[in-house]
Simulated assay, not measured.
Amino acid sequence: MSACTTCGACCACFRVDFAVYEMEDMGGRVPSGLAVEVNGSTMRMRGTDHVPIRCAALTGKVGGQVGCGIYEWRPSPCREFEEGSDACTRARQRHGMPPVDGAD
């Protein structure tokens, strides 16, 4: 089982900006209503620009059992985020969790 299904720290740590063309109503896959416009070319996942940060698509308890409500349709920054990366380690540390086993 991936540590991601019991973590969710990245979803409660980082701002998630992506191109407007990733939105469902622009031909992409991110469901309308889960993002807000930053400018004419950039969208942001709801909840990722507020403190405390928590993406609107995140379900469950960070550090317990979590999931992404739009996993199949998540935007590119979420698809590109790597378990065990430096950013993953920073997010986990901010939530009082150790690095993923095997991470540098």
Rank of each mutant, 00 (worst) to 15 (best):
S41I: 04
S41K: 01
T42G: 00
T42Q: 00
M43C: 00
M43N: 00
M43E: 06
M43G: 00
M43Q: 03
M43L: 02
R44V: 13
R44H: 05
M45G: 02
R46L: 12
R46T: 11
G47Q: 02
G47C: 03
T48Y: 02
T48D: 05
T48H: 02
D49W: 03
D49Q: 05
D49M: 03
H50W: 06
H50F: 09
H50L: 13
H50D: 14
V51K: 06
P52Q: 09
I53L: 05
I53A: 05
R54T: 01
R54G: 02
C55A: 09
C55V: 13
C55L: 08
A56Y: 04
A57P: 05
A57Y: 03
L58Q: 01
T59F: 03
K61G: 00
K61D: 04
K61F: 01
V62Q: 03
V62F: 02
G63L: 04
G64A: 06
G64W: 00
Q65V: 09
Q65R: 09
Q65A: 10
Q65H: 03
V66T: 11
V66C: 07
V66K: 04
G67M: 08
G67L: 08
G67A: 14
G67Q: 03
G67P: 07
C68Q: 14
C68N: 12
C68D: 13
G69P: 11
I70D: 11
I70C: 13
I70K: 11
Y71K: 15
Y71V: 15
E72H: 15
E72W: 14
E72Q: 15
W73F: 12
W73Q: 15
W73P: 06
W73C: 14
R74D: 13
R74M: 14
R74F: 14
R74A: 10
P75G: 05
P75Q: 07
S76G: 08
P77F: 07
P77E: 10
P77M: 08
C78Y: 07
C78H: 07
C78K: 06
C78I: 12
R79N: 14
R79E: 13
E80D: 13
F81S: 10
F81H: 14
E82L: 15
G84F: 08
G84P: 08
G84C: 12
G84K: 07
S85I: 13
S85H: 09
S85P: 10
S85F: 09
D86T: 09
D86N: 10
D86K: 08
D86P: 06
D86F: 02
A87E: 11
A87S: 10
A87Q: 08
C88K: 02
T89M: 05
